[in-house]
């Protein structure tokens, strides 16, 4: 259970850091920590093989989101 509390605390911390940070580029690493924490929390909440899939899906999805935001923020690929 301690693991879950640690993860949740880190999630709250990361969320607050991500929100108060002004610069978009530096927001994303904080959001990334949040993603890690939530993905971990999903598995810890429900001990079932499928929750691994859920965590992975969430993690991949949110990583993709961060990736897309960062890339668009960078101006995309110059072709």
């Amino acid at each position: 259970m301690i693991a879950l509390y640690v993860v949740a605390a880190i999630a709250v911390f990361a969320a607050i850091r991500a929100i108060i940070e002004k610069n978009t580029g530096r927001k994303l690493p904080y959001a990334n920590v949040l993603n890690f924490a939530v993905a971990g929390a999903l598995v810890l909440l429900l001990d079932h093989p499928l929750s691994l899939v859920a965590a992975a899906a969430y993690f991949v999805g949110s990583t993709l989101e961060s990736n897309a935001i960062a890339s668009t923020y960078a101006g995309g690929v110059k072709r």
Binding site: L28, P29, A31, N32, F36, A39, G40, V43, L44, D47, H48, P49, S51, L52, A55, A56, F59, V60, T63, S66, N67, A70, S71
Partner: peptide, 19 residues
């Protein structure tokens, strides 16, 4: 941030081993 790297691998592997 932009892609699941070894850290994500570690996390998910730990999750996988857990379940």
């Amino acid at each position: 941030v932009c892609s699941p790297d070894a850290s994500a691998g570690t996390l998910l592997a730990a999750c996988g081993v857990y379940v």
